[in-house]
């Protein structure tokens, strides 16, 4: 597989999340300026258009587009529903008491999952904004008595399970219908506690996704870190047969260091794309059947999120001061 960067747009902000309505040309990005912005990537010279209304008060870390509507989540703990035509907020909910790290739409787009540093996963009715269910099972504190963090969440393709992952390397898989815990897995290598030199921690599982057949669960972060002042652990992915509670592959890049911030499967194939970075960024293609890293592509800044547009054979990445488009060919 070959990947080629086509556009590399600069912005003074940090883009934590990107979304697009199916088939549309506009990209929506959640930003460090507490706002949501739109970019028309089909334009010859795409220009950033800020939503005039600013309802969030901190970094916007999750955006998802539905027809005519955008849902955003932010470090301020709120979820907002936006009218994409008027670019105004239809509904705002105080959803969590701490930072919302990620949101995820269910496969049928009827539910929104949110995870936050209050260590609670929540399900919301995507139409009404009503709270449907909560998932509580992650420890509030790390084993060393510091606040833990709940970084990411993902839906199984059939919408029956939700995975949530935390700082200390705990993966919990929940039954959506009942709220009961289905499986508990661990990826402890992704959490580094330095008891001697620096006496704090770094890392955590930053990304998670299910395979298209629902059998595999893939998580991303970075490997053990020597000097925790920097993101100097090797980019790391672990692949589980989650129902059998078996780790199938442990993959660490020898080329790239830093956090794997987002992972997503190709919808019809047995490979996934993982992105992230340290000061700079990377994109990695992983064959999940063999555990082979078949693609390692660098980027000039850290990547926080991406979306794959299979109709357009286009990849869009958002990250530190950059919004970029890429094409790929097998």
């Amino acid at each position: 597989m070959k990947i080629t960067r086509e556009k590399n747009l600069s912005t003074p902000d940090i883009l934590f999340s990107v979304a697009r309505e199916t088939g549309a040309s506009l990209i929506y990005a959640g930003s460090s300026d507490a706002g949501v912005q739109a970019w028309d990537l089909d334009a010859e010279k795409p220009v950033r258009q800020d939503f005039a209304e600013k309802r969030h008060t901190s970094y916007v870390t999750g955006v998802f587009a539905r027809p005519g509507q955008l849902i955003s989540g932010a470090y301020d703990g709120t979820l907002c529903w936006w009218d994409l035509n008027a670019k105004t907020v239809q509904r705002s909910i105080s959803a969590h008491s701490k930072w919302i790290r990620r949101i995820a739409l269910s496969p049928d787009r009827s539910l929104v999952a949110s995870v936050a540093d209050d260590m609670v996963g929540k399900l919301w009715n995507a139409e009404t904004g009503e709270l449907v269910r909560t998932f509580e099972g992650h420890a509030q504190q790390t084993p060393h008595h510091y606040p833990s963090m709940l970084y990411a969440t993902a839906w199984s393709p059939d919408g029956q399970y939700l995975a949530t992952v935390d700082k200390t390397g705990i993966i919990l898989v929940w039954q959506v219908a009942t709220g009961e815990l289905a499986r508990k897995l661990e990826a402890p290598v992704m959490y580094t506690w330095d008891p001697r030199a620096r006496r704090h921690s770094i890392g955590g599982i930053r990304s998670v996704c299910f395979s298209p057949d629902g059998k595999l669960l893939v998580v991303g972060g970075m490997g053990k870190v020597g000097n925790i002042d920097h993101l100097e652990g090797h980019a790391r992915v672990e692949i589980f047969d989650w129902q059998q509670e078996t780790r199938l592959h442990e993959i660490e890049s020898t080329k790239f260091k830093g956090l794997v911030e987002k992972i997503e499967f190709h919808p019809h194939d047995n490979w996934c794309l993982a992105v992230g970075g340290d000061h700079k960024g990377f994109l990695m293609g992983i064959n999940t059947a063999t555990g082979e890293l078949f693609l390692e592509e660098g980027h000039d800044t850290h990547i926080h999120d991406f979306l794959l547009d299979h109709e357009r054979q286009q990849l869009i990445t958002g990250g530190h001061n950059r919004l970029s488009t890429w094409s790929w060919s097998s």
Partner: peptide
């Protein structure tokens, strides 16, 4: 001495731990 606040990476997470302490 409470070390180590040298947060070249993940400043905000580091300060969430160290400031809590």
């Amino acid at each position: 001495a409470r070390a180590w606040w040298d947060s070249h990476g993940q400043n905000f997470e580091t300060h969430q731990e160290l400031c809590a302490d």
